[in-house]
Amino acid sequence: MIIISPEDYMKKIISLMCIIFILSSLSCKKKTETSIKEITTKSGIEMIFVPEGEFIMGDGSADAPLHKVKISSFYMDKYEVTQKMYKTLDLPNPSHFKGENRPAEMVAWINAAIYCNERSIEEGLTPCYDEKTWECNFEANGYRLPTEAEWEYAAKAGTSGKLFFAPDPKNLKNYAVFSKNSQGKTETAGSKKPNPWGFFDIYGNVAEWCNDFYDKDYYKNSPSKDPRGPKNGNERVIRGGSWNDSEEIVNSTARSKDPSLSDACILRDTIGFRCVRKGD
């Protein structure tokens, strides 16, 4: 029979706790590394992997009541799609404010979807959009526009509330190209600080198309996991605000919409987009 003294017993307990602590730390560290991470796609575009998670969507306003949403993992472009990225695919660049590293704008929703499909084809992935119906196949491994929920999850980046930075609105100028600091046009993509997950220009520069049709009451009945917007509509959601928008729009939660799905007569030099694709 082995008799353990109280001192030895305590030493073993402490050693065991240390081992558990170290293992726990390692485990946490590993989890962090597989959480937010940057990748570069086959065509050389930087994206950020966003792990599955849960967040409070909305801001409590009439068209954005607070509600809990679960999101599956996805990759999202680190920057708004630039004119250089557009031209790499030999697609017509409709932008008003020309510049390779400026975001593409004047992009109709349909042309943003076409870009997604072409980028998918370029990388040997399955295009998400049916170009006759413009329905999105969320199971395809190609590129698509973010759902409104994915966009807000990425914009909030683990924070809550309207702004991802310390709540002094004066800080907005450090993170966004918007009406008070733009020169009446877009700026080079990534000219301001990124959000906590590394997304640049998630606020401002160009407002970003989402895949969802817009419905002001959608949040009231939307599914709690991976909401994908109403089935039909005449307008699509845009998020994040632009170089021409004020603080009321340039944030994580303000919902906007636009009807320029394909009509060249109403294209806006304030609207661009970034792409996502589903997580591994």
Partner: peptide, 13 residues
């Protein structure tokens, strides 16, 4: 036509 990669219906293309 502007693009040789793919067809565009857009009048401005």
């Amino acid at each position: 036509s502007e693009s040789t990669r793919r067809f565009s219906l857009e009048s401005w293309s």
